[in-house]
Computed example of a mutant assay.
Amino acid sequence: MLQASPMYAYIPAKDIARARRFYEDQLGLRPREETNGGVVYEFGGGTAAFLYPTPNAGTSQASQAFWSVQDVDAQMQWLKSRGVRFETYDDMPGERSPQGAITAGGAKAAWFKDPEGNIMALIQALPTS
């Protein structure tokens, strides 16, 4: 039953104003609505994320969410031009692209942190042979 239902991401923030500047000014997101002290951002395919206030932001050492993109390297280049710094995981296996994305396991991926310490990812599914 859950498989047929939309799933949404929660993005924790200690400082909503700071987080909004990052998501809106650097990533170029437009808020759909403000609610319960936070903000909802809408994405492709009817998906969305809720940026919400909590003192627990940035405590996860794993990715909070990812964007499924057509071209990770192009997205990285655009985001870098807006001041986004990507994480480098030297112990991660795979081939590294000129922009720094890692290709392994049928996907190309890159990670960055928001100012709250949350790890976000860009993932590009690669064609299977």
Rank of each mutant, 00 (worst) to 15 (best):
S63G: 05
A48T: 10
S81W: 02
A107S: 12
R21V: 15
A101Q: 08
L126K: 14
E33R: 14
P6D: 02
E33Y: 01
S68G: 04
Q75R: 11
F66D: 05
R30Y: 02
T54S: 13
Q99C: 06
D114R: 11
S68L: 14
E34V: 07
P12N: 02
S5Y: 13
N56Y: 08
V84E: 08
E24A: 13
P12C: 02
G28K: 10
Y10F: 12
G83F: 08
S97Y: 06
N56R: 14
D25P: 00
D25L: 02
R21T: 15
I11L: 14
Y23Q: 10
Y23T: 07
D91W: 06
Y10S: 11
R21W: 04
V84S: 05
Q70W: 01
F43M: 09
A65H: 01
S68Q: 13
R85H: 12
A49S: 14
A62M: 02
Q124C: 03
W78A: 15
R32F: 06
F66I: 00
T103A: 13
V40P: 05
G105P: 00
E42I: 03
P115Y: 07
L79Y: 14
W78N: 11
R21C: 07
N56W: 05
Y8H: 14
F66W: 08
R30G: 13
T88R: 13
N56F: 13
V72D: 05
L51T: 03
R20M: 13
V40I: 15
V39P: 03
K113A: 13
Q61L: 12
Y10V: 05
Q61K: 08
L51A: 04
D90S: 06
A19N: 04
G106H: 11
S129M: 08
A49K: 07
W67L: 15
N118E: 09
G37E: 03
M7P: 00
V69H: 05
G100I: 12
A65K: 01
S60F: 04
Y23G: 04
A104P: 00
P115H: 08
D15L: 03
A125F: 08
T35L: 10
M76K: 08
T54P: 13
R20W: 04
Q61A: 08
F112L: 07
Y10H: 12
I11Y: 04
A19S: 14
D91A: 10
E116Y: 07
D90V: 05
P6L: 03
F112V: 05
M76E: 07
S97I: 06
E34K: 05
F86C: 04
L27Q: 01
A109P: 00
L51M: 09
P6H: 02
V84W: 03
M1P: 00
R32G: 10
F22H: 06
G117V: 11
Q64M: 06
L29K: 00
P53W: 01
Y52G: 06
R20I: 11
Q99H: 04
L29E: 00
Q75W: 14
Q70F: 04
A107R: 15
P98Y: 09
E87R: 10
L122S: 07
R32Y: 05
S129C: 02
F66R: 04
W111Y: 14
P53G: 02
T88I: 11
Q75C: 15
M120R: 00
V84Y: 05
Q61N: 10
A48K: 14
L126F: 09
A19D: 03
T35F: 07
A74N: 05
K14R: 15
G28P: 08
R96K: 15
L29W: 15
A125M: 12
V72H: 06
A49Y: 06
N118T: 12
D15M: 03
E95Y: 00
